[in-house]
Write a protein that binds this DNA or RNA. Sequence first.
DNA 1: GGCCAGGATTTAA
DNA 2: TTAAATCATGGC
Length: 279
Amino acid sequence: MKQIVFDDEYFNIVDTLNCGQIFRFRAFDDGFLVFSKDKACFLRQNNGVISITVNEDDENYFYRFFDLDRDYKKINDFAKSDGVEIVKKSAELGKGIRILNQDAEEMLFSFVISQNNNIPRIKKSIEFLCREFGRKKTFMGVEYRSFPTANELVGAELSQLKEAGLGYRAEYISGLACKIASGYSVESLKNFNTDDLRAELISLKGIGEKVANCVLLFGFNRYDSFPVDTWIEKVYKEDFLGEFTSRHKITAFFMERYKDYAGLIQQYLFYYKRSLEKR
DNA sequence: GGCCAGGATTTAA
DNA sequence: TTAAATCATGGC
C-alpha cells in the first residue's frame, strides 16, 4: 500500500464524486472507495489534506486519474471572473471539483448507458454489469468487481444485458463490445486530435454529440469539449438567455466562449444547476 | 398517468 | 439542413 497526499484547496472528494462524471464509488470507513477499470483506491479528506491509498503498482495510474498535475486555481479564478452570475457561483460551489482521467473504454460503455437516463439508474446498471460480468477483486479487505472488458461483455446474451435495466441501450452495448472485442482499438484513438476523435466517436452506434463530448472529457482528457445535456440546456436558456434551440449550436456557443477551459466550467455548471433543483 | 432523466436514431419535411 | 416520432425503464 502507498499513500498519495494532496492539498485539498482545489480537491473536494464529495463534489468530485457526485458531479456526474463517475458512477463507481462507495462510502467506506471515514472516506470513499473509488473504482476504475480493475483497480481501486481509498480516499479520505481531513485537516486540509486529501490522502489517497493505492496499491504500490497503481500509484502512477491514480496520480493521473485525479488529475494532480493540473493548475485548477487558474481555471477556477477565470470562471469566477466571468460576467454571468451562475458561472461565478458555480465556480465557488464547485471549486473542489476535479475532472477525472478515467479509462476510455469504461467511459464509452458508461456514457452509452447514460443517454436519456438518470444518474441513480446509470449507477445501478453499471453495478449490475460489474457484478455479473466483471472479475472478483479485493482491496483493503473489501470485495469488489472490475469493470467488464469488451471480451467479457461480448459473451453476454442480450436478455442478460436487459436484466441490467439497459432497455433499448442493451443493443448499443452489445454492438460496441462486439466491435472492440473483434479488434477495434480504443487505445489508438488517443492519438487523434479532438475534432477527429469526436467525429470517430459519433460514428459509433449509440454515441451522439453529447455522449462523445463526455467521453472526450472524462475518458480522453480533452478539456476542450462541452457536453450539453438537459441541465446545461436549462443553464443556457435560463441563465444565459440564449436563443439557439439545437444542442449542437449550444455546444458551439460555450466552446467558443470557454475554449480550453470548457470542460471544467461545464462540470461547474452542471453540478450547480442540478444541486439547485434536486432538493 | 404524464413527465423527466448527463439522448440517439430514423424518417420526414 | 432542421423537426418530430420512437426508443425502455423507474422515480416522482
